[in-house]
């Protein structure tokens, strides 16, 4: 006897699979054929024609990134969680050290205080750190002295972890949009990304029974915080 939950999960999985397989093929074709046009027929086009083609290619690539983001988000909600004691300081340090060299290179200084361990899914919590640290470094890299600070505070029933940067920040009036899917408060070419990272962070934290929020000042930086309950099995 399958429960409604199991039916829904199966439907979601089939939906994600459809997105993966059925959407990817036409996107691949659009990218492939427009690149073929670029490679072999750019000489037949004038500057404007070539520009139009470049837009087609880059928008098709954007669709591909959005598909990947959506799939990652869907996976995060479905994969089974394995609760272990996670050493957060070690994990955060690992994530910082494994970051690919950014382009252009940045000398962002990242300070990590001692962070209390917590019960949670190691793989998923690693993703949380990856997205928060990536965001923090991304938004502060334009500063002269980019700094990211990570610290935590222990409360009776929960531990609050904070990631603070001294970057562009944002207006608190829009803060509720921050964690939406594909929401970006900073558009344009300065800050790349699909805007799915914080939605993924929120979903993971909620699956742990926690909460996530942000605090910021436009022009001065932002602090992203997440709280995880203690004593959960």
């Amino acid at each position: 006897m399958t429960t409604e939950f199991e039916v829904l999960t199966a439907e979601l999985e089939s939906f994600s699979y459809s997105v993966s397989h059925d959407l990817r093929a036409p996107v691949r074709a659009v990218i492939g054929f427009s690149r073929a046009l670029e490679d072999d027929y750019a000489v037949c086009l004038d500057d404007e024609g070539r520009r139009l083609l470049t837009v087609v290619v880059s928008e098709a690539q954007r669709i591909s990134e959005l598909i990947d983001g959506l799939l990652a988000f869907s996976r995060v909600g479905r994969q089974p969680m394995e609760h272990v004691l996670v050493e957060m300081t070690v994990l955060a340090c690992e994530v910082v050290n494994e970051r690919a060299s950014p382009d252009p290179p940045s000398d962002v200084v990242i300070e990590i205080d001692d962070l209390p361990s917590v019960s949670g899914d190691h793989v998923l919590l690693r993703m949380v750190w990856e997205h928060l640290i990536s965001n923090a470094t991304k938004f502060s890299r334009l500063e002269t002295l980019p700094r990211v600070r990570i610290w935590a505070s222990q409360e009776p029933t929960r531990i609050v972890y904070n990631v603070q940067d001294n970057g562009v920040g944002f207006e608190m009036a829009y803060s509720d949009k921050l964690f939406g899917i594909f929401q970006k408060l900073h558009g344009g070419d300065n800050f790349s990304g699909t805007g799915i990272g914080l939605a993924i962070v929120k979903r993971i934290v909620h699956r742990h029974g926690g909460t996530v929020w942000a605090d910021a000042k436009l022009g001065e930086g932002a602090t992203l915080s997440f709280a995880l309950p203690i004593g959960r099995e």
Partner: peptide
């Protein structure tokens, strides 16, 4: 697995 990006493909 067929890559979506044409250079990778």
């Amino acid at each position: 697995t067929k890559p979506v990006q044409s250079t990778a493909f």
